[in-house]
Computed example of a mutant assay.
Amino acid sequence: MKIIGITACPTGIAHTYMAQECLEKECLKRGYEVKIETQGGLGIENELTDEDVESADVVILAVSVVIEGEERFTNKPTIHTDVDEAISHVEDLVNRAVALAKGE
């Protein structure tokens, strides 16, 4: 299973990176491949490549603001949520992503 995503919060500081860390830890704990792009105060970091997007099973957009490049995921199963869910309910969020990827 390969999960990719973007995290972004209104101030682009703490919550953006906390959400990234929570998603990465949960996915790695389960043995999933994961890459999370951040769109924070320092701009776009860990940018998702075309190859990342093509090979992904599912996309998690844990964002509380408008992001750049959302059109990249048009043909991918995508969950739209906010950074708070990625931080506080990451297990449930990843469960939903996996179910979506599997068509459940």
Rank of each mutant, 00 (worst) to 15 (best):
T81D: 08
V59T: 11
T78S: 11
V90S: 06
V94S: 02
R72V: 01
I60A: 01
G69Y: 08
A62D: 10
S88K: 15
T81A: 07
I60Q: 00
E70Y: 09
T74I: 13
V58M: 08
E91G: 11
L61P: 05
V90R: 04
E68N: 15
I67C: 07
G69E: 10
V65E: 03
N95S: 13
D82G: 15
V66H: 08
A99M: 14
V66W: 06
D84S: 10
K76Q: 12
E68W: 01
V98Q: 05
V83H: 00
A99D: 14
V66T: 08
D92E: 15
V63E: 00
V65L: 02
V90H: 01
V83Q: 01
T81E: 08
D92L: 05
R72E: 11
V58Y: 02
D84G: 02
I87G: 00
T74V: 10
T74M: 12
E85M: 10
H80E: 02
H80F: 13
L61G: 03
P77G: 03
S64P: 01
V59C: 09
E85S: 06
H89P: 00
A99P: 02
P77Q: 09
R96D: 14
I79Y: 04
V94H: 00
V63L: 06
V94E: 04
V63F: 03
V90I: 13
N75I: 07
V58D: 09
N75A: 13
V66F: 06
A97K: 01
D84R: 11
L93P: 00
H80Y: 13
V65I: 15
V65P: 06
